[in-house]
Design a protein around this nucleic acid. Structure first.
Lengths: 215, 215
DNA sequence: CGCAAGTCGTATGGGGATGTATGAGATAGT
DNA sequence: ACTATCTCATACATCCCCATACGACTTGCG
Protein backbone atom coordinates (compact mmCIF):
# COMPACT_ATOMS: atom_id res chain seq x y z
CA UNK A 1 0.00 0.00 0.00
CA UNK A 2 2.19 2.83 -1.24
CA UNK A 3 -0.66 5.30 -1.31
CA UNK A 4 -0.43 6.04 2.36
CA UNK A 5 2.64 8.04 3.01
CA UNK A 6 2.45 11.15 0.89
CA UNK A 7 -1.05 12.38 1.44
CA UNK A 8 -0.02 15.83 2.63
CA UNK A 9 3.24 16.25 0.80
CA UNK A 10 2.41 19.51 -0.90
CA UNK A 11 -0.40 21.41 -2.51
CA UNK A 12 -3.09 23.58 -1.07
CA UNK A 13 -3.99 21.62 2.04
CA UNK A 14 -6.82 23.54 3.56
CA UNK A 15 -8.75 22.82 6.72
CA UNK A 16 -10.25 19.32 6.70
CA UNK A 17 -12.58 19.83 3.74
CA UNK A 18 -15.21 21.60 5.77
CA UNK A 19 -15.30 25.14 7.07
CA UNK A 20 -12.67 26.22 4.58
CA UNK A 21 -14.08 29.68 4.24
CA UNK A 22 -11.48 32.19 3.08
CA UNK A 23 -8.64 30.38 4.73
CA UNK A 24 -5.08 31.52 4.87
CA UNK A 25 -4.41 31.06 1.20
CA UNK A 26 -2.86 33.52 -1.11
CA UNK A 27 -5.08 35.87 -3.05
CA UNK A 28 -4.33 34.42 -6.47
CA UNK A 29 -5.01 30.95 -5.15
CA UNK A 30 -8.45 31.99 -4.03
CA UNK A 31 -9.04 33.59 -7.38
CA UNK A 32 -8.02 30.45 -9.18
CA UNK A 33 -10.22 28.39 -6.98
CA UNK A 34 -13.16 30.56 -7.95
CA UNK A 35 -12.20 30.39 -11.60
CA UNK A 36 -12.08 26.62 -11.43
CA UNK A 37 -15.46 26.42 -9.76
CA UNK A 38 -17.02 28.62 -12.37
CA UNK A 39 -15.31 26.74 -15.16
CA UNK A 40 -16.61 23.47 -13.81
CA UNK A 41 -20.16 24.67 -14.24
CA UNK A 42 -19.70 25.91 -17.78
CA UNK A 43 -17.54 22.99 -18.88
CA UNK A 44 -20.03 20.46 -17.61
CA UNK A 45 -22.80 22.36 -19.32
CA UNK A 46 -21.04 22.02 -22.64
CA UNK A 47 -20.15 18.41 -22.13
CA UNK A 48 -21.87 16.49 -19.34
CA UNK A 49 -18.90 14.22 -18.84
CA UNK A 50 -16.04 16.58 -19.31
CA UNK A 51 -12.71 15.36 -18.06
CA UNK A 52 -10.69 17.05 -15.37
CA UNK A 53 -8.35 18.21 -18.11
CA UNK A 54 -11.25 19.81 -19.96
CA UNK A 55 -12.32 21.68 -16.89
CA UNK A 56 -8.81 22.87 -16.18
CA UNK A 57 -8.51 24.10 -19.75
CA UNK A 58 -11.86 25.86 -19.48
CA UNK A 59 -10.58 27.57 -16.36
CA UNK A 60 -7.41 28.58 -18.12
CA UNK A 61 -5.36 26.78 -15.56
CA UNK A 62 -3.02 23.81 -15.49
CA UNK A 63 -4.42 20.44 -14.63
CA UNK A 64 -2.03 20.16 -11.72
CA UNK A 65 -3.15 23.45 -10.31
CA UNK A 66 -6.63 22.08 -10.25
CA UNK A 67 -5.50 18.99 -8.39
CA UNK A 68 -3.82 21.30 -5.96
CA UNK A 69 -7.22 22.64 -5.00
CA UNK A 70 -9.30 19.52 -5.32
CA UNK A 71 -7.64 16.19 -4.76
CA UNK A 72 -10.22 14.21 -6.61
CA UNK A 73 -12.76 14.67 -9.31
CA UNK A 74 -15.64 13.94 -6.99
CA UNK A 75 -14.42 16.57 -4.58
CA UNK A 76 -14.35 19.08 -7.40
CA UNK A 77 -17.85 18.33 -8.56
CA UNK A 78 -19.17 18.49 -5.05
CA UNK A 79 -17.49 21.80 -4.35
CA UNK A 80 -18.84 23.26 -7.57
CA UNK A 81 -22.33 22.09 -6.78
CA UNK A 82 -22.19 23.39 -3.24
CA UNK A 83 -20.98 26.72 -4.49
CA UNK A 84 -23.66 26.86 -7.13
CA UNK A 85 -26.39 26.05 -4.67
CA UNK A 86 -25.14 28.54 -2.15
CA UNK A 87 -25.31 31.28 -4.71
CA UNK A 88 -28.82 30.13 -5.52
CA UNK A 89 -29.76 30.28 -1.88
CA UNK A 90 -28.77 33.90 -1.72
CA UNK A 91 -31.03 34.76 -4.61
CA UNK A 92 -33.93 32.73 -3.32
CA UNK A 93 -33.73 34.21 0.13
CA UNK A 94 -34.68 37.54 -1.38
CA UNK A 95 -37.96 36.24 -2.73
CA UNK A 96 -40.97 37.02 -0.66
CA UNK A 97 -43.24 34.07 -0.04
CA UNK A 98 -45.95 36.16 1.56
CA UNK A 99 -49.27 37.08 0.07
CA UNK A 100 -51.35 35.21 -2.47
CA UNK A 101 -49.88 31.72 -2.86
CA UNK A 102 -50.26 31.70 -6.62
CA UNK A 103 -48.44 34.99 -6.98
CA UNK A 104 -45.74 33.92 -4.56
CA UNK A 105 -45.39 30.74 -6.54
CA UNK A 106 -44.89 32.76 -9.70
CA UNK A 107 -42.20 34.83 -8.03
CA UNK A 108 -40.43 31.78 -6.74
CA UNK A 109 -40.55 30.03 -10.10
CA UNK A 110 -39.25 33.08 -11.89
CA UNK A 111 -36.22 33.16 -9.63
CA UNK A 112 -35.73 29.43 -9.47
CA UNK A 113 -35.85 28.41 -13.08
CA UNK A 114 -32.76 30.36 -14.01
CA UNK A 115 -30.83 28.66 -11.26
CA UNK A 116 -32.15 25.32 -12.37
CA UNK A 117 -31.05 26.13 -15.87
CA UNK A 118 -27.54 26.89 -14.68
CA UNK A 119 -26.90 23.95 -12.45
CA UNK A 120 -28.91 21.14 -13.96
CA UNK A 121 -26.02 19.74 -15.96
CA UNK A 122 -23.75 19.95 -12.98
CA UNK A 123 -26.34 18.23 -10.89
CA UNK A 124 -26.63 15.41 -13.37
CA UNK A 125 -22.89 14.97 -13.28
CA UNK A 126 -22.95 14.99 -9.51
CA UNK A 127 -25.53 12.25 -9.40
CA UNK A 128 -23.04 9.90 -10.99
CA UNK A 129 -20.30 10.64 -8.55
CA UNK A 130 -21.83 11.56 -5.23
CA UNK A 131 -24.04 9.51 -2.94
CA UNK A 132 -27.70 10.31 -3.44
CA UNK A 133 -28.08 11.17 0.22
CA UNK A 134 -25.49 13.91 -0.03
CA UNK A 135 -27.30 15.49 -2.94
CA UNK A 136 -30.70 15.44 -1.29
CA UNK A 137 -29.10 17.00 1.73
CA UNK A 138 -27.78 19.86 -0.34
CA UNK A 139 -31.15 20.51 -1.92
CA UNK A 140 -32.99 20.33 1.31
CA UNK A 141 -33.22 24.04 1.86
CA UNK A 142 -34.41 24.98 -1.62
CA UNK A 143 -36.84 22.11 -1.70
CA UNK A 144 -38.25 22.93 1.71
CA UNK A 145 -38.93 26.47 0.61
CA UNK A 146 -41.00 25.42 -2.35
CA UNK A 147 -42.72 22.66 -0.41
CA UNK A 148 -43.70 25.07 2.31
CA UNK A 149 -45.26 27.41 -0.16
CA UNK A 150 -47.21 24.65 -1.85
CA UNK A 151 -48.43 23.42 1.51
CA UNK A 152 -49.62 26.83 2.52
CA UNK A 153 -51.35 27.13 -0.81
CA UNK A 154 -53.17 23.91 -0.16
CA UNK A 155 -54.21 24.91 3.35
CA UNK A 156 -55.56 28.21 2.12
CA UNK A 157 -57.49 26.61 -0.67
CA UNK A 158 -55.47 28.15 -3.47
CA UNK A 159 -53.93 24.88 -4.61
CA UNK A 160 -55.70 21.60 -5.12
CA UNK A 161 -55.51 19.02 -2.37
CA UNK A 162 -56.32 15.89 -4.35
CA UNK A 163 -52.64 15.48 -5.20
CA UNK A 164 -49.81 15.10 -2.72
CA UNK A 165 -47.38 17.96 -2.37
CA UNK A 166 -44.56 15.69 -3.45
CA UNK A 167 -46.15 15.30 -6.85
CA UNK A 168 -46.72 19.01 -7.24
CA UNK A 169 -43.09 19.45 -6.33
CA UNK A 170 -41.72 17.03 -8.88
CA UNK A 171 -44.04 18.43 -11.49
CA UNK A 172 -42.61 21.85 -10.85
CA UNK A 173 -39.13 20.43 -11.14
CA UNK A 174 -39.62 18.63 -14.39
CA UNK A 175 -41.45 21.48 -16.07
CA UNK A 176 -38.71 23.92 -15.12
CA UNK A 177 -36.13 21.48 -16.38
CA UNK A 178 -38.07 20.98 -19.56
CA UNK A 179 -38.14 24.71 -20.13
CA UNK A 180 -34.42 24.89 -19.51
CA UNK A 181 -33.82 22.18 -22.05
CA UNK A 182 -36.00 23.91 -24.62
CA UNK A 183 -34.04 27.07 -24.09
CA UNK A 184 -30.77 25.24 -24.48
CA UNK A 185 -31.78 23.86 -27.85
CA UNK A 186 -33.01 27.26 -28.93
CA UNK A 187 -36.64 26.29 -29.26
CA UNK A 188 -37.70 28.64 -26.51
CA UNK A 189 -36.82 32.22 -25.74
CA UNK A 190 -35.35 32.53 -22.25
CA UNK A 191 -37.54 35.55 -21.57
CA UNK A 192 -40.66 33.58 -22.34
CA UNK A 193 -39.73 30.66 -20.16
CA UNK A 194 -41.21 31.85 -16.86
CA UNK A 195 -44.48 32.64 -18.55
CA UNK A 196 -44.63 29.25 -20.23
CA UNK A 197 -43.93 27.52 -16.97
CA UNK A 198 -46.60 29.43 -15.11
CA UNK A 199 -49.05 28.91 -17.93
CA UNK A 200 -48.78 25.18 -17.35
CA UNK A 201 -48.37 24.94 -13.61
CA UNK A 202 -50.87 27.45 -12.33
CA UNK A 203 -53.91 25.98 -14.08
CA UNK A 204 -52.66 22.55 -13.08
CA UNK A 205 -52.24 23.43 -9.43
CA UNK A 206 -55.06 25.82 -8.66
CA UNK A 207 -58.22 24.49 -7.18
CA UNK A 208 -60.91 24.29 -9.78
CA UNK A 209 -64.27 25.08 -8.13
CA UNK A 210 -66.22 23.73 -11.09
CA UNK A 211 -65.86 20.16 -12.34
CA UNK A 212 -65.29 18.75 -8.87
CA UNK A 213 -66.67 15.30 -9.62
CA UNK A 214 -65.36 13.23 -12.47
CA UNK A 215 -66.60 9.88 -13.76
CA UNK B 1 -6.31 1.61 -42.73
CA UNK B 2 -6.14 -1.86 -41.29
CA UNK B 3 -9.78 -1.88 -40.29
CA UNK B 4 -10.94 -2.56 -43.76
CA UNK B 5 -10.12 -6.13 -44.59
CA UNK B 6 -11.79 -8.20 -41.95
CA UNK B 7 -15.20 -6.68 -41.76
CA UNK B 8 -16.94 -9.83 -42.90
CA UNK B 9 -14.53 -12.44 -41.61
CA UNK B 10 -16.98 -14.19 -39.42
CA UNK B 11 -19.89 -13.56 -37.12
CA UNK B 12 -23.49 -12.91 -37.83
CA UNK B 13 -23.29 -10.74 -40.92
CA UNK B 14 -26.84 -9.80 -41.71
CA UNK B 15 -28.19 -7.70 -44.50
CA UNK B 16 -26.74 -4.17 -44.53
CA UNK B 17 -28.13 -3.06 -41.20
CA UNK B 18 -31.59 -2.38 -42.58
CA UNK B 19 -34.32 -4.82 -43.48
CA UNK B 20 -32.68 -7.46 -41.36
CA UNK B 21 -35.92 -9.12 -40.43
CA UNK B 22 -35.43 -12.81 -39.60
CA UNK B 23 -32.53 -13.28 -41.94
CA UNK B 24 -30.81 -16.53 -42.65
CA UNK B 25 -29.32 -16.95 -39.24
CA UNK B 26 -29.51 -19.94 -37.06
CA UNK B 27 -32.23 -20.20 -34.48
CA UNK B 28 -30.03 -19.86 -31.43
CA UNK B 29 -28.30 -16.90 -32.97
CA UNK B 30 -31.60 -15.11 -33.35
CA UNK B 31 -32.46 -16.00 -29.80
CA UNK B 32 -29.19 -14.62 -28.55
CA UNK B 33 -29.68 -11.49 -30.55
CA UNK B 34 -33.03 -10.99 -28.87
CA UNK B 35 -31.55 -11.77 -25.47
CA UNK B 36 -28.84 -9.20 -26.04
CA UNK B 37 -31.30 -6.55 -27.10
CA UNK B 38 -33.42 -7.15 -24.04
CA UNK B 39 -30.39 -7.23 -21.81
CA UNK B 40 -29.24 -3.93 -23.21
CA UNK B 41 -32.42 -2.28 -22.04
CA UNK B 42 -32.31 -3.72 -18.55
CA UNK B 43 -28.57 -3.28 -18.12
CA UNK B 44 -28.73 0.35 -19.13
CA UNK B 45 -31.63 0.87 -16.79
CA UNK B 46 -29.58 -0.37 -13.88
CA UNK B 47 -26.51 1.58 -14.86
CA UNK B 48 -26.86 4.31 -17.46
CA UNK B 49 -23.34 3.84 -18.69
CA UNK B 50 -22.93 0.13 -18.54
CA UNK B 51 -20.03 -1.28 -20.51
CA UNK B 52 -20.37 -3.75 -23.32
CA UNK B 53 -19.07 -6.38 -20.95
CA UNK B 54 -21.81 -5.56 -18.48
CA UNK B 55 -24.45 -5.92 -21.12
CA UNK B 56 -23.03 -9.19 -22.34
CA UNK B 57 -23.00 -10.48 -18.79
CA UNK B 58 -26.58 -9.33 -18.28
CA UNK B 59 -27.54 -11.24 -21.41
CA UNK B 60 -25.75 -14.32 -20.14
CA UNK B 61 -23.56 -14.36 -23.18
CA UNK B 62 -19.88 -13.93 -23.90
CA UNK B 63 -18.67 -10.52 -24.79
CA UNK B 64 -17.34 -11.81 -28.08
CA UNK B 65 -20.67 -13.25 -28.99
CA UNK B 66 -22.13 -9.82 -28.58
CA UNK B 67 -19.54 -8.38 -30.92
CA UNK B 68 -20.52 -11.03 -33.39
CA UNK B 69 -23.97 -9.50 -33.57
CA UNK B 70 -23.13 -5.86 -33.19
CA UNK B 71 -19.76 -4.65 -34.36
CA UNK B 72 -19.73 -1.57 -32.25
CA UNK B 73 -21.25 -0.26 -29.10
CA UNK B 74 -23.12 2.46 -30.92
CA UNK B 75 -24.62 -0.08 -33.26
CA UNK B 76 -25.82 -2.08 -30.29
CA UNK B 77 -27.42 0.89 -28.59
CA UNK B 78 -29.08 1.95 -31.77
CA UNK B 79 -30.44 -1.53 -32.45
CA UNK B 80 -31.78 -1.79 -28.93
CA UNK B 81 -33.47 1.57 -29.19
CA UNK B 82 -34.94 0.79 -32.59
CA UNK B 83 -36.25 -2.48 -31.27
CA UNK B 84 -37.69 -0.82 -28.22
CA UNK B 85 -39.41 1.86 -30.24
CA UNK B 86 -40.78 -0.62 -32.72
CA UNK B 87 -42.41 -2.55 -29.93
CA UNK B 88 -43.80 0.71 -28.67
CA UNK B 89 -45.17 1.53 -32.09
CA UNK B 90 -47.12 -1.69 -32.12
CA UNK B 91 -48.77 -0.84 -28.83
CA UNK B 92 -49.49 2.73 -29.78
CA UNK B 93 -51.01 1.80 -33.09
CA UNK B 94 -53.79 0.09 -31.19
CA UNK B 95 -54.80 3.25 -29.42
CA UNK B 96 -57.77 5.04 -30.90
CA UNK B 97 -57.27 8.76 -31.35
CA UNK B 98 -60.87 9.38 -32.29
CA UNK B 99 -63.54 11.01 -30.20
CA UNK B 100 -63.14 13.61 -27.51
CA UNK B 101 -59.57 14.94 -27.62
CA UNK B 102 -59.19 14.96 -23.86
CA UNK B 103 -60.24 11.36 -23.57
CA UNK B 104 -58.09 10.32 -26.49
CA UNK B 105 -55.21 12.12 -24.83
CA UNK B 106 -55.79 10.15 -21.67
CA UNK B 107 -55.75 6.90 -23.60
CA UNK B 108 -52.57 7.83 -25.39
CA UNK B 109 -50.83 8.89 -22.21
CA UNK B 110 -51.85 5.71 -20.44
CA UNK B 111 -50.23 3.64 -23.16
CA UNK B 112 -47.25 5.88 -23.67
CA UNK B 113 -45.97 6.40 -20.20
CA UNK B 114 -45.10 2.76 -19.65
CA UNK B 115 -43.07 2.78 -22.81
CA UNK B 116 -41.39 5.96 -21.77
CA UNK B 117 -40.58 4.37 -18.45
CA UNK B 118 -38.96 1.42 -20.17
CA UNK B 119 -36.83 3.16 -22.70
CA UNK B 120 -35.93 6.44 -21.09
CA UNK B 121 -32.60 5.23 -19.74
CA UNK B 122 -31.76 3.66 -23.06
CA UNK B 123 -32.67 6.86 -24.79
CA UNK B 124 -30.40 8.85 -22.53
CA UNK B 125 -27.57 6.50 -23.34
CA UNK B 126 -28.32 6.79 -27.03
CA UNK B 127 -28.14 10.55 -26.89
CA UNK B 128 -24.50 10.29 -25.97
CA UNK B 129 -23.61 7.98 -28.78
CA UNK B 130 -25.90 8.68 -31.69
CA UNK B 131 -26.35 11.82 -33.73
CA UNK B 132 -29.30 13.83 -32.51
CA UNK B 133 -30.83 13.79 -35.97
CA UNK B 134 -30.99 10.01 -35.96
CA UNK B 135 -32.81 10.00 -32.66
CA UNK B 136 -35.36 12.57 -33.69
CA UNK B 137 -35.91 10.54 -36.81
CA UNK B 138 -36.70 7.45 -34.76
CA UNK B 139 -39.14 9.32 -32.58
CA UNK B 140 -40.82 11.00 -35.46
CA UNK B 141 -43.70 8.60 -35.64
CA UNK B 142 -44.57 8.58 -31.96
CA UNK B 143 -44.13 12.30 -31.69
CA UNK B 144 -46.25 13.00 -34.73
CA UNK B 145 -49.06 10.94 -33.26
CA UNK B 146 -49.17 12.97 -30.09
CA UNK B 147 -48.68 16.25 -31.89
CA UNK B 148 -51.53 15.50 -34.23
CA UNK B 149 -53.83 14.80 -31.37
CA UNK B 150 -52.88 18.00 -29.58
CA UNK B 151 -53.39 19.97 -32.77
CA UNK B 152 -56.82 18.53 -33.32
CA UNK B 153 -57.66 19.32 -29.71
CA UNK B 154 -56.66 22.91 -30.29
CA UNK B 155 -58.69 23.22 -33.49
CA UNK B 156 -61.75 21.79 -31.81
CA UNK B 157 -61.44 24.11 -28.84
CA UNK B 158 -60.70 21.39 -26.33
CA UNK B 159 -57.12 22.48 -25.71
CA UNK B 160 -55.86 25.97 -25.14
CA UNK B 161 -54.34 27.82 -28.07
CA UNK B 162 -52.31 30.42 -26.22
CA UNK B 163 -49.40 28.00 -26.04
CA UNK B 164 -47.63 26.40 -29.00
CA UNK B 165 -48.10 22.72 -29.54
CA UNK B 166 -44.39 22.18 -29.12
CA UNK B 167 -44.61 23.34 -25.55
CA UNK B 168 -47.58 21.15 -24.79
CA UNK B 169 -45.60 18.31 -26.26
CA UNK B 170 -42.51 18.82 -24.18
CA UNK B 171 -44.63 19.33 -21.11
CA UNK B 172 -46.23 15.98 -21.74
CA UNK B 173 -42.82 14.44 -22.16
CA UNK B 174 -41.30 15.80 -19.00
CA UNK B 175 -44.29 15.02 -16.84
CA UNK B 176 -44.35 11.44 -18.04
CA UNK B 177 -40.66 11.17 -17.43
CA UNK B 178 -41.07 12.68 -14.01
CA UNK B 179 -43.69 10.11 -13.17
CA UNK B 180 -41.40 7.36 -14.41
CA UNK B 181 -38.63 8.63 -12.20
CA UNK B 182 -40.90 8.79 -9.19
CA UNK B 183 -41.94 5.23 -9.83
CA UNK B 184 -38.35 4.12 -10.13
CA UNK B 185 -37.46 5.54 -6.75
CA UNK B 186 -40.54 4.00 -5.20
CA UNK B 187 -42.23 7.27 -4.33
CA UNK B 188 -45.12 6.62 -6.68
CA UNK B 189 -47.23 3.56 -7.33
CA UNK B 190 -47.08 2.54 -11.00
CA UNK B 191 -50.82 2.07 -11.07
CA UNK B 192 -51.39 5.62 -9.92
CA UNK B 193 -49.03 7.14 -12.43
CA UNK B 194 -51.45 7.62 -15.34
CA UNK B 195 -53.94 9.28 -13.07
CA UNK B 196 -51.31 11.62 -11.63
CA UNK B 197 -50.15 12.55 -15.09
CA UNK B 198 -53.64 13.27 -16.33
CA UNK B 199 -54.43 15.20 -13.18
CA UNK B 200 -51.69 17.63 -14.06
CA UNK B 201 -51.86 17.78 -17.82
CA UNK B 202 -55.59 17.92 -18.47
CA UNK B 203 -56.27 21.00 -16.35
CA UNK B 204 -53.15 22.56 -17.78
CA UNK B 205 -54.11 21.91 -21.38
CA UNK B 206 -57.86 22.36 -21.48
CA UNK B 207 -59.26 25.68 -22.49
CA UNK B 208 -60.43 27.65 -19.53
CA UNK B 209 -63.47 29.71 -20.53
CA UNK B 210 -63.30 31.79 -17.36
CA UNK B 211 -60.26 33.92 -16.42
CA UNK B 212 -59.40 34.76 -20.00
CA UNK B 213 -57.73 38.05 -19.21
CA UNK B 214 -54.91 38.29 -16.74
CA UNK B 215 -53.17 41.41 -15.46
C1' DC C 1 -24.01 -37.75 -38.86
C1' DG C 2 -21.20 -34.33 -40.39
C1' DC C 3 -20.36 -29.63 -41.60
C1' DA C 4 -21.18 -24.98 -41.42
C1' DA C 5 -22.67 -21.61 -38.17
C1' DG C 6 -22.28 -19.88 -33.88
C1' DT C 7 -20.11 -19.41 -29.23
C1' DC C 8 -16.57 -18.35 -25.86
C1' DG C 9 -11.84 -17.74 -23.52
C1' DT C 10 -7.83 -15.52 -23.84
C1' DA C 11 -4.60 -12.39 -25.60
C1' DT C 12 -3.41 -8.08 -27.75
C1' DG C 13 -3.43 -3.21 -29.08
C1' DG C 14 -4.99 1.41 -28.74
C1' DG C 15 -7.04 5.18 -26.35
C1' DG C 16 -8.21 8.09 -22.75
C1' DA C 17 -8.99 9.35 -17.90
C1' DT C 18 -7.59 9.60 -13.06
C1' DG C 19 -4.07 10.44 -9.71
C1' DT C 20 0.80 10.79 -8.25
C1' DA C 21 5.48 12.67 -8.32
C1' DT C 22 8.97 16.09 -9.16
C1' DG C 23 11.15 20.24 -9.95
C1' DA C 24 11.76 24.70 -12.01
C1' DG C 25 9.79 29.03 -12.27
C1' DA C 26 6.36 32.88 -11.13
C1' DT C 27 4.10 35.69 -7.67
C1' DA C 28 2.01 37.45 -3.53
C1' DG C 29 2.81 39.30 0.89
C1' DT C 30 5.58 41.08 4.50
C1' DA D 1 13.97 41.90 -1.53
C1' DC D 2 13.24 37.69 0.26
C1' DT D 3 10.57 33.65 1.23
C1' DA D 4 6.69 30.76 1.53
C1' DT D 5 3.23 29.87 -1.44
C1' DC D 6 1.35 28.79 -5.67
C1' DT D 7 1.51 27.49 -10.71
C1' DC D 8 2.45 24.52 -14.38
C1' DA D 9 4.86 21.26 -17.71
C1' DT D 10 6.16 16.83 -18.07
C1' DA D 11 6.36 12.28 -17.00
C1' DC D 12 4.60 8.20 -15.08
C1' DA D 13 1.68 4.33 -13.18
C1' DT D 14 -2.75 2.51 -13.23
C1' DC D 15 -7.03 1.41 -14.56
C1' DC D 16 -10.98 0.74 -17.53
C1' DC D 17 -12.96 0.21 -21.86
C1' DC D 18 -13.53 -0.60 -26.77
C1' DA D 19 -12.33 -3.36 -30.55
C1' DT D 20 -9.82 -7.05 -33.05
C1' DA D 21 -7.63 -11.58 -33.75
C1' DC D 22 -7.18 -16.32 -33.13
C1' DG D 23 -8.29 -20.92 -31.98
C1' DA D 24 -10.89 -24.45 -29.87
C1' DC D 25 -15.21 -25.96 -28.65
C1' DT D 26 -20.40 -26.63 -29.08
C1' DT D 27 -24.57 -26.97 -31.51
C1' DG D 28 -28.15 -26.32 -34.84
C1' DC D 29 -29.71 -28.21 -39.12
C1' DG D 30 -29.82 -30.44 -43.55
Amino acid sequence: MPTKKAQVTRGTRRAPATANRAANQRADAQRNRAKILAATVTAIRKNPDASVADIAAEAGVGRMTLYGHFQTRAELIEAALVDSLEQGEEVLEGVSLEGDPAEAFQRLVASSWVLVDQSRALLAAAQKELPAARIREMHESAEARMRGLLLRGQREGAFRVDLPVSWLLTTTHVVMNGAAEEVRTGRLDPDDAPWFIDAILLPAFTQDPTEAGEA
